[in-house]
Simulated assay, not measured.
Amino acid sequence: MFTGVRSLVCRQRSEASYFIPRQKFSVIPAKAGIQIVRQCPDAGQARAHHGRLNFCDTLSRHPARVSVRSGFCYAQPRRSIIHNMINRMIAVMVLLANLAHAQSHTPEISFLVTREGEFILTDARVDLPVPSALVWAVLTEYARYQRFISSMHESKIVSRSPEGSVVEQKGSFSFMFFSQGIEARLLVSEVPPNLIVTRAIEGDFQVMNGRYEIRQAGNNTRLSFSGRLVPKFSLPPIFGLSIVRYILLRNFREMVDEILRRDAEAHRVIRADG
């Protein structure tokens, strides 16, 4: 009945936590996914203490965190705690990546991933101090993607037609314990010099549409991307969207880094020839 419960968590309105003896509590059956601990007879006395609760519930000898709210405590299933921990780890990794890019003086990237029904939507934008022709060149060199996008293992053009190019890509969605190999064939339509539209026609996605736009923004070139996807494979519940955001943001950053690297290389060649 109580499998998987090791941590009892509840909140008092003041957000304080207190030491309470183990014998003050007993667990009753769960309702709506939440387990409730019987009313603590000394709840008022418990509020007189300060610090963090540290005791074991009746189901485990592991430490548990408990607070008091109106004399009741709530048990949070272990699965919810694990989900929260993983979400926080992903958030920390994204934050560290943001700090690393800030210290490297790379342009700021606006990046948003949301869910709308079954669709995962992506919107990204960055202003780059490079010529628009260079951005176009990097985006359209599909056979080079695996050289600078870490999740891409293979990318090649398999055919061309008046409709566009068919690009076959193989890679993976990987983060910590989660790893999913992916394959896709994309129909890529180019409208030089500022628009690329992609659509999955085969592979591991029910829907995978993307749109790159290149525009002038003052002295910079603005690269924008919008996309939506529906994978055929299952993502982890609760934190699956966080994993997708982490991977797609990393891919976009690696694309931006390659554009900047190519621009710096071109400037070095010009200086050397001069």
Rank of each mutant, 00 (worst) to 15 (best):
M1D: 02
R61K: 09
N98I: 00
M176R: 14
S70H: 14
R253C: 05
I270G: 00
M1E: 05
V135I: 08
R222S: 11
I86C: 02
P131T: 09
Y145F: 14
G164A: 11
I196S: 07
D263Q: 06
I36F: 12
F19S: 14
R144Y: 01
V197I: 09
I247F: 03
I196Q: 05
A184I: 06
A46Y: 07
V68G: 00
E190G: 02
V94K: 10
L195I: 02
L128N: 08
S7D: 08
I36H: 10
A64P: 01
F111P: 01
L128H: 08
F19L: 11
M208W: 05
F252R: 06
A143N: 15
G203T: 04
L235K: 03
K232W: 00
V66D: 04
I34A: 08
D263I: 00
Q216W: 01
P41V: 04
H83C: 11
R250M: 05
R222D: 02
T58Y: 07
G44C: 01
S151W: 04
F2M: 04
L59H: 13
N220W: 08
T140R: 09
Q23K: 11
G44N: 07
R253T: 08
S110R: 13
S104H: 09
M89C: 10
L53Q: 07
R69K: 12
L186V: 02
V37L: 14
R47H: 07
S161Y: 08
D42W: 10
S70V: 07
K156Y: 03
F2E: 03
S26Q: 15
I36T: 14
D204R: 08
S132P: 01
L59R: 11
F205P: 03
P107F: 06
R245G: 06
F55Q: 07
R11H: 08
G117D: 09
I36Y: 13
F148G: 08
I34K: 08
A91F: 09
P63Y: 08
V92N: 12
R78V: 05
M208L: 15
E213I: 00
S165A: 14
Q103A: 09
M208D: 02
G164S: 11
F252I: 04
S26T: 14
F252K: 05
A137G: 03
L112Y: 06
F177M: 10
E258V: 01
A266P: 02
S67T: 10
A91R: 09
R199T: 12
F173L: 15
H49T: 13
R245N: 11
N98Q: 09
E141D: 15
M85D: 12
F205D: 06
V207H: 03
G51L: 04
Y74C: 04
T58W: 05
N209P: 00
I157G: 02
S151C: 11
A64N: 06
D263P: 00
A217N: 10
H83M: 04
S224Q: 12
M93T: 00
R253A: 01
Y145A: 06
G71H: 03
Q180N: 07
S104C: 09
G227F: 02
G44A: 05
H153N: 15
R52M: 12
S17A: 12
V113C: 12
D273M: 10
E15D: 14
N87Y: 06
I182Y: 00
